[in-house]
């Protein structure tokens, strides 16, 4: 079986996951405490999709940070429950019942996003930083460089990412686990590159960039100090948007058994294995579905709200 996330990688993913969750928790608290970002949060909150998105995300962060402490069981332990061989129904001891090996399903659901969140977060960050970096630099390069690169990008972008993944798997037979990150990250960075470049083009045409050139600054200085800060909004929205797409991509790959190796908990794997049982044991099917979709919807809606908040603000600023 092709299993990308072997135990070692899964262990790594676990650590990264905790880092990500803690970082997000701190960010969440920070966002509420620091004034300018509270204003931004407020603006996102004004749109209904932003409100829904923020709630979902907050719930997920709280569950992932505090969940493991509150749940007595470990997701890997197989319980010996006597005559009932498996699929122990929900009760006091196991609020969501047990799965086919009599593992605590609640514990598995709570930690089932680890691999997905850790891997896709890294991938999104890689895709955004590389895509934004290249997109901004391209606009400052001579015209012909831009033309050549964009043509290559357009050609690459029409290759589906799954084909990329399979190709890389056969090329680097030894590559395991986190190979999702550079491969899919590179692919997604192309889309980011196009969006950021389009925005940066409008910035580079402005006089303050010309002024910086006339003063004699180097291109790299201009990219970081004059252009990048003014692309920040676009990059932020891109980051959130791409992350949702990546989560879906990861889910699809994992559903086909390309990502996480059994027995590690993963929502997509759980969905895959219980999809034939969902009439008889619905409690094994719906929880991972709900978790996965609320996370995806949460990030996506927040990105929407963010885009609207920023877009609206911009129009309002032009007005007065």
């Amino acid at each position: 079986m092709m299993a990308f996330l072997d135990p070692i990688s899964y262990y790594l993913a676990d650590k990264i996951y905790y880092l990500v969750c803690t970082a997000m928790f701190i960010t969440m608290v920070g966002l509420v405490v620091i004034k300018p970002s509270r204003r931004l949060l407020g603006r996102i909150w004004r749109h209904w999709n932003g409100r829904v998105g923020l709630c979902f995300i907050a719930a997920h962060i709280l569950i992932s940070v505090f969940g493991p402490w509150l749940i007595p069981h470990d997701p890997y332990t197989q319980f010996d429950l006597g005559e009932i061989a498996r699929y122990y129904p929900p009760g006091l001891e196991f609020p969501l019942g047990t799965d086919d090996r009599n593992r605590d399903f609640l514990a598995r659901v709570v930690s089932g996003g680890r691999a997905a969140i850790a891997v896709t977060c890294l991938t999104a960050i890689l895709a955004i930083s590389w895509g934004a970096f290249a997109g901004i630099f391209l606009t400052l390069m001579p015209r012909w460089v831009d033309g050549v690169v964009m043509r290559i990008v357009d050609a690459l972008i029409s290759v589906p990412w799954l084909a990329f993944l399979l190709l890389a798997m056969t090329l680097f037979a030894g590559a395991r686990g986190f190979s999702f990150v550079p491969i899919v990250g590179f692919f997604y960075s192309l889309a980011v590159l196009r969006v950021v470049r389009a925005h940066a083009t409008t910035i580079v045409a402005l006089d303050y960039v010309t002024a910086a050139r006339a003063r004699g600054h180097r291109i790299s200085w201009i990219a970081f100090h004059e252009v990048l800060p003014n692309c920040r909004d676009v990059i932020l929205v891109e980051l959130a948007m791409r992350w949702t797409w990546l989560l879906l991509a990861f889910a699809v790959a994992s559903f086909f058994g390309l990502m996480v190796e059994i027995p590690a908990p993963d929502w997509s794997l759980m969905i895959a294995s219980s999809r034939t049982l969902f009439l008889s044991y619905p409690y094994l099917f719906w929880p991972p579905v709900i978790m996965l979709s609320t996370l995806v919807i949460g990030i996506n809606f927040t990105a929407d709200g963010l885009a609207k908040a920023i877009g609206l603000d911009r129009r309002a600023a032009d007005m007065v």
Binding site: L206, D207, Y208, T210, A211, A214, R215, G216, E226, P229, N230, R232
Partner: peptide, 21 residues
């Protein structure tokens, strides 16, 4: 640098000539 310094330019529209950030 010394030559760059000796010549400075000011633009027509100050709202696009200064970085809003």
């Amino acid at each position: 640098r010394a030559t760059q310094r000796r010549l400075q330019m000011v633009f027509q529209n100050p709202s696009t000539a200064l970085n809003p950030n």
